[in-house]
Write a protein that binds this DNA or RNA. Structure first.
Length: 509
DNA sequence: CGTATTTGACCTGCGC
DNA sequence: GCGCAGGTCAAATACG
């Protein structure tokens, strides 16, 4: 429906219209029985002016009485689209009025756009403020991390003692356990020499499983026999895939056993909890319980029931020496989507398994630098009371100890019945990795035998550059950010003499 | 009645 | 080869 601008001639009953192209005069014609009619506008009498009054429906107006149309025009005055005086006799002026009215309409629309623009500017400003705030927080955290790294560098590394399957080293006030014997072929050879001197077997079975290339170099040794025996169960399960027979003098195939490794990689969590089981976001079904030797508390076996056929299992057992500590050991990777609350756990086990698997990968550097012992050192160095790799367990096991307070910067209170969340655990691991990345050798390192110092240097370089560890760490971090739910639980503040066989404290005594 | 837990039996690996 | 220990299975039982 076209609308035109209503014109009124001052001191006249006549009403005119003009649209975008034409100008008409509208009035009642006595000649047509006073019916309203539209005809081309005649010039107004001299001295009269046409006044743009307001907007009116062009076509419907001509069928209505003049007074009614005039009334409608007047009622639209508040639209503020006219009121410019022009000389009706000057057609060009009328055209100008038309053009000007269009401009005014455009200006109104422009005004609305400007209002919207202002609103968007304000919103943009608010979002900019948020970005700045987040950026500042990020910078602050980065500086804190940098200070932590520098602090750790100042603490240095000190060789403490040699144990049967590992070497005890302290980083600052914390212990770390190094499986130096399986770092690379050269170190293994040195261990063979030491074996003659000390009569000890230094190669943990599970690590040999993951690094057959190294073990193959020790053909005929007792270590290999242990490896073969330890692999028997895995090989039997993989017989359908054509694995090499057990106890064969022939070298094992160079390819690792990723499935078996992933299946056997474990993540053990120590946490103070009165509850029978820590809440990890998954659904579990108990399928067995056994009394373990040396522990009056039974060990319960659970399997994941969130999906049919999910291979993930876990064991729950209380620590023999301190029954307030609940030891939960996870094994395997979920074969189904996980709820956010379970993402951190799944990411942890998956990352651990990935890193252990990476340790089994054949390496072109002549010995597989990124083997599981590196993971040990990656997790251990600055928080051996936080995360350890077990050298005595039948399978590679990462132990996250939440019963200690490894760092005042990350110390969080823990209610006795509420275990810490894995977001905190992983955050600690991230911190540890950061600290280790900035690790430097102290003067005491020069007192070590060269092979150990070299090994530690190599370990540092490997961990800081290894993409697999980075990827695993990224997975853990993304799970923290993506699946984390706020949890104020924390690690226990009190120091505790950890007596579990899988932890470093016990081995260090 | 369906589901979860308990518990003794069984299997397997490993040391002696 | 035997015995021990860890791990799993499955029938019996408990529970809602």
């Amino acid at each position: 429906m076209e609308k035109g601008w209503g014109l009124a001639l001052e001191n006249s009953d006549r009403v005119g219209f003009f649209g975008s192209k034409s100008v008409f005069e509208y009035s009642q014609s006595p000649r047509l029985n006073n019916r309203s009619t539209m005809f081309p506008a005649a010039p107004p009498p001299a001295g009269e002016h046409a006044v743009v009054l307001g907007e009116v429906d062009f076509f419907s107006a001509k069928k209505r009485p003049v007074d009614e149309v005039k009334k409608e025009i007047n009622e639209t005055r508040d639209l503020n689209i006219g009121l410019q005086l022009v000389t009706a006799s000057d057609r060009s002026k009328v055209d100008d009025v038309s053009s000007d009215a269009e401009d005014r309409r455009a200006k109104i629309e422009m005004g609305q756009i400007e209002v919207e623009l202002e609103r968007m500017k304000a919103e943009n400003q608010r979002l900019k403020g948020m970005v700045t705030h987040i950026s500042n927080n990020y910078t602050t955290l980065q500086m804190q991390l940098h200070r932590l790294m520098q602090h750790q560098q100042n603490e240095g590394i000190h060789f403490v003692s040699q144990k049967k399957k590992a070497y005890m080293v302290t980083v600052g006030s914390l212990y770390m356990k190094l499986s130096l014997d399986i770092v690379c072929g050269q170190i293994v050879e040195r261990k063979s020499e030491e074996k003659e001197e000390n009569g000890v077997v230094l190669v943990p079975r599970q690590f040999l499983e993951l690094n057959k290339q190294i073990s193959d170099e020790q053909s005929g040794s007792s270590s290999e026999e242990r490896m073969v025996s330890g692999n028997k169960r895995i090989n039997e399960r993989d017989e359908s895939e054509g694995s090499a027979p057990n106890k064969s003098p022939k070298p094992a195939p160079p390819e690792p056993l990723p499935d078996a490794t992933m299946r056997k990689a474990r993540v053990s969590v120590r946490a103070r909890s009165e509850a029978p089981m820590i809440s990890d976001g998954c659904q579990w079904r108990k399928y067995g319980q056994k009394m373990a030797k040396g522990n009056p508390c039974p060990r319960a076996y659970y399997r994941c029931t969130m999906a049919v056929g999910c291979p993930v299992r876990k064991q729950v057992q209380r620590c023999a020496e301190d029954r307030t500590i609940l030891i939960t050991t996870y094994e395997g990777n979920h074969s189904h989507p996980l709820p956010p609350a379970a993402m951190s756990m799944a990411s942890t086990t998956s990352s651990a398994a990935s890193m252990l698997l990476a340790g089994s990968m054949p390496s072109g550097d002549g010995g597989g630098l990124m083997n599981p012992s590196f993971l040990t050192r990656a997790m251990l160095p600055c928080s051996s009371n936080m995360a350890t790799i077990s050298a005595s367990a039948p399978f590679p096991t990462i132990t996250l100890d939440l019963t200690h307070s490894p760092s005042p910067h990350f110390q969080l209170p823990l209610a006795p019945a509420t275990p810490p969340s894995f977001h905190q655990v992983l955050g600690q691991v991230v911190q540890n990795q950061s600290k280790f990345s900035g690790l430097q050798m102290s003067q005491d390192m020069s007192q070590l035998r060269p092979s150990y110092a070299d090994t530690l240097s190599a370990a540092t370089a490997a961990i800081t550059s290894d993409p697999t560890f980075t990827a695993a760490l990224a997975a853990a971090i993304s799970s923290i950010l993506g699946g984390a739910q706020p949890n104020n639980d924390g690690a226990a503040a009190a120091n505790h003499n950890n007596a579990d066989v899988n932890t470093i404290d016990d081995n260090a005594q």
